[in-house]
Structure formats: C-alpha cells, structure tokens
C-alpha cells in the first residue's frame, strides 16, 4: 500500500467503511509513515468540523414554511387546486399536521387555508376602466360628450339548473386530554355529521373522528374558521390532526 492508497483508506477508516483486513493494512501503513499519521489526524479534525454541521436544519434562504409552500405548489400542479374556471369543477383542499408539529402545523394549515382563499380571490371579474379616453379630454371649454347610448346587453340564455353542491369534510385529531376532545366535539357538533371518539390510548391520547357535510356555498370557509378558532384555544393540547375535504 502506497501513501495515496493509504490516505484513501485512512479517510474511509474514519467512517468505519473498511473491512477488517483493509483497516489492518491501513493501520500498518500509518504506523510506519509519519506523514500519513499526521494526514489522518488532520482529516479527523476536518471531518469532525463538517459533521458538526446539522444539514437537517433550515438552510439560509429557506423560509420557515417552505414545506407548506412546496405542498401548495404541488397541490396546484398535481391536483388542480387552482381556482376553477368552471363553477362545476370541484375544489379540494387538504390540511394536515403531524405529531410533534401541532402548533407549527396548525399555523401551516391556517396558512394553507389563507393561501387557498387568496388564490380564489385572485379569480375575480375584471373591473371596468376607471376613466375612459373621452372623460380625459373633457374640459370647461369643451362640451362634455353626451351620455353614450349603451347597446342593450346581449341576451344570455338561461343556464340549466345545476344540482346543489355539497361540502364534505373528514377530520381526525388526537388530543392530550379528554377536555380538549370534548371541546372539539362541542365545537364541531354544530355541523351535521357523525362523530366518533375513542377511549384514551396507552399514551393517554384521545382520538376523535368527525365526518360532516354542509351546503357548498360557505361550508368550507366556515369550517376553516372553526378550525382556526379551535387552534387558538386548544393548539397546545393537540398532538396531531388531519383534515381533508371536498366540494362536489
């Protein structure tokens, strides 16, 4: 084993990536080569320095909610959650949170809902122009143009009646105490649907599941308000939750 081979091996030895035979050979070389011994010491220092960096931390330039933003973008691109051009197209939203992330995830879910709402808000009809060219050229010496005669609006054929749309929701959450579970039941019982709760698990958590449905017009927004209200009051007692809904 020459010094070049020994350096590769000694570097790998730091990572326990050698077989026992390879390790023995590398050690044997180092014991007889002062240069490679010093090299190994320095490599160990460099490695220790690098391994002290936690690459799982948030790197610079990454916003705190990048995960949510990526999810939002992917939902938009994969699942078609952009504002629908046709009122018949169903909207779908999913908010979720995982154990250990309750506060952050609840905030993320709120952000998700806000993002969805803002996206829906972007799809508004174009506003009429503030000023027309004829209005701009009006002055005291010039008679204002007479009120233009507007043509009658084109006749719009009556749309066929659409079937009523309904909002369906499914909420699962796990609370650390029965009081939070009961509070959730009281709050969400305003919605027609089924409610299931469990006895405390081994870990002492109370799980509950709510399936509900309501009129499509405002149901999604109103239910999100309930969720946010519940988050404000009981976020610290929630271990996890998952909410999915669909309007059809």
């Amino acid at each position: 084993m020459n010094c070049t081979e020994a350096k590769d091996a000694l570097s790998a030895l730091l990572d326990n990536a050698l077989t026992s035979d390879e390790a023995r050979e590398a050690e044997a070389h180092a014991s007889s080569c002062a240069g490679c011994r010093a090299w190994r010491t320095e490599m160990a220092e460099v490695r220790q320095l690098l391994r002290g960096i936690d690459d799982g931390d948030e790197p610079p330039g990454l916003s705190a909610f990048v995960g949510r933003e990526v999810m939002a973008a992917i939902h938009g691109r994969l699942l078609g959650t952009k504002p629908a051009p046709s009122p018949e197209r169903s909207a779908r939203r999913i908010a979720w949170a995982a154990a250990g992330f309750s506060a952050l995830a609840l905030a993320a879910a709120a952000g998700w809902a806000a993002w969805e709402s803002s996206r829906r808000g972007e799809k508004r009809p174009d506003r009429p122009a503030v000023a027309s060219p004829s209005a701009e050229k009006t002055s005291s010496s010039v008679k204002p143009d007479p009120e233009p005669v507007r043509p009658p609006p084109p006749e719009v054929p009556d749309e066929p009646p659409r079937p009523a749309r309904t909002h369906y929701g499914h909420l699962e959450l796990r609370a650390t105490d029965a009081g939070t579970r009961d509070a959730a039941r009281d709050l969400f019982s305003k919605w027609p649907g089924t409610f299931k709760s469990s006895e405390p698990s081994v870990s002492g958590a109370f799980a509950l599941t709510i399936d509900f449905e309501g009129p499509a017009s405002d149901a999604a927004d109103e239910f999100e308000k309930l969720l946010l209200d519940f988050q404000r009051k009981h976020g610290a007692s929630l271990r996890s939750w998952k909410y999915s809904s669909e309007t059809r």
């Binding site: 790197p59 610079p60 990454l62």
Partner: peptide, 22 residues
C-alpha cells in the same frame, strides 16, 4: 396517497434544501 407525499415533503424539505444550497 397524496397525504403521504405531504408528510415526506415536510420531513425532507429542510434537508434537501440544504443539499441544493451546498
């Protein structure tokens, strides 16, 4: 299952963002 995808995104985003930066 898109919910599983969401969880993977949440789990891996910080680490992969670090990789992209490096």
């Amino acid at each position: 299952d898109t919910r599983a995808l969401e969880l993977l995104i949440q789990r891996w985003s910080p680490r992969l963002a670090g990789l992209f930066y490096r």
